[in-house]
């Protein structure tokens, strides 16, 4: 589904990712783990097409067989990629419904979008007021994360990257997020970037990918996450 080919990425001339080759498959859940600064978020932003992250000449990204390397973020979103932020921004005067309607204009009926957002808000136990306020303004960390999941659900993309969806979120919120994601997992690929094992209890990954110093150093199954929990990343080194 998503193929990274010799992916080397730098910010302001400093190389962060080093020649990553990997392929994410449909219907699978991937947990990306690794110490701080190992390049997890950089990988997420790069997949989404953030302009600050510069790719090396022969680095390529393919989505469903098509090269998306030169595409801006909105066209990648169009193709089916979604990125849930580690620290969701707050947008003054912008309501989530406005955002969703613009993102889906011409594809879904505004009324349908509104209803769906409301329905999902209930399932995620998001206070209805938040839908009619400026996005994330004055919202807690947990509320912000839930709003990200709400957007993911309404936009309904194929490949969803969740960057630390589990930090700043209480157990109940985490459970409702995980339960929600589980229900729609079948035809999608999830990339869960996390520091902790916590969310992986609720959302069982097919693969655990360990990153360190801008490289993928190990790929394994769920046992690998348990091992990390027990003995840290120290033993992972390539």
């Amino acid at each position: 589904m998503l193929k990274l080919q010799s992916l080397s990425v730098s910010i302001n001339g400093k190389q962060i990712l080093h020649k990553i080759d990997f392929e994410f498959a449909k219907g699978k859940i991937y947990a990306i783990m690794g110490p701080n600064g190992s390049g997890k978020s950089t990988l997420a932003y790069t997949i989404m097409g953030h302009p600050t992250y510069k790719l090396a000449k022969n680095s390529k990204i393919f989505y469903n067989g098509q090269e998306i390397t030169p595409l801006p973020a909105n066209e990648r979103a169009e193709k089916g990629i979604f990125l849930s932020y580690q620290t969701p921004l707050s947008l003054a005067g912008v309501k989530v419904n406005q955002l969703l309607q613009l993102a889906l204009s011409g594809k879904k009926d505004p009324l349908f979008i509104r209803r769906q957002a409301l329905k999902i808000a209930k399932q995620l136990r998001i206070n209805e007021d938040l839908l009619n306020r400026s996005l994330n303004e004055g919202a807690s960390g947990g509320e912000r994360k839930k709003m990200e999941v709400l957007q993911a659900a309404v936009l309904d993309k194929e490949l969803m990257i969740f960057d630390e969806i589990d930090t700043g979120v209480d157990v109940d919120a985490l459970k409702s997020i995980a339960a929600y994601l589980r229900r729609f997992q079948k035809d999608k690929a999830y990339i869960i970037i996390t520091h902790y094992n916590r969310i992986l209890h609720y959302l069982k990954p097919h693969f655990v990918v360990i990153m360190d110093k801008g490289k993928i150093v190990r790929v394994g199954d769920r046992q690998l996450a348990k091992q990390v929990e027990k003995s840290g990343y120290g033993e992972m080194g390539s």
């Binding site: 801006p72 909105n74 990648r76 979103a77 969701p88 947008l91 003054a92 005067g93 936009l155």
Partner: peptide
């Protein structure tokens, strides 16, 4: 960053700018 956030949600750049400006004057 705000522009990218909105574009990552599927908004064209001009739509994203318009939304932010209209949010500013709201």
């Amino acid at each position: 960053e705000k522009l990218f956030y909105l574009m990552a949600r599927g908004l064209k750049k001009v739509d994203a700018e318009g939304l932010l400006v209209n949010g500013f004057i709201e």
